[in-house]
C-alpha cells in the first residue's frame, strides 16, 4: 500500500517485530506506518464479520489500525510511535481473557 522513497539511515532506524518477523522502521514514525511500509496487510480482522482491515486514516480517528503491541490487544497502531524491540501482532480482533 505504501512504499518508502528512501530508506532511513541506520542512525535513524529501529527494528520492531511484526508477527515475529523483523521490520525496520524510521525513528519517530508510528507502528502503523512501519507496518504499511512493510506491506503487511490485513492488520486485523473486523470483530463482527472477520473481514480483512488495514490502517485507514493514520490520525487516530477511525480505529481501524488496532493491533497487539507488546501483548496489549487493540492498541491504535497509528498513535503508537515505534520503539526498538517492540513486538507487534496482527489479527487481534477479539482478545481472550481465558487462562490456560
Amino acid at each position: 500500500m505504501l512504499v518508502r522513497r528512501t530508506e532511513p539511515p541506520a542512525s535513524a532506524a529501529v527494528t520492531i517485530t511484526v508477527d515475529g518477523r523483523d521490520v525496520r522502521a524510521r525513528k519517530g514514525e508510528s507502528v502503523a506506518a512501519a507496518v504499511l511500509a512493510a506491506g503487511i496487510v490485513p492488520t486485523r480482522l473486523a470483530p463482527v464479520s472477520g473481514a480483512p482491515r488495514a490502517p485507514y486514516c493514520l490520525m487516530g480517528s477511525c480505529y481501524e489500525c488496532l493491533m497487539t503491541v507488546d501483548d496489549r490487544a487493540n492498541v491504535q497502531a497509528c498513535m503508537t510511535p515505534v520503539k526498538d524491540g517492540m513486538r507487534v501482532r496482527t489479527h487481534a480482533s477479539r482478545p481472550s481473557l481465558r487462562h490456560g
Binding site: L2, T6, A33, A37
Partner: peptide
C-alpha cells in the same frame, strides 16, 4: 505517511 515516514503510495 509522506510527512512522517517519507512513504508514498504503492
Amino acid at each position: 505517511a509522506l510527512k512522517t515516514s517519507d512513504l508514498v503510495p504503492e
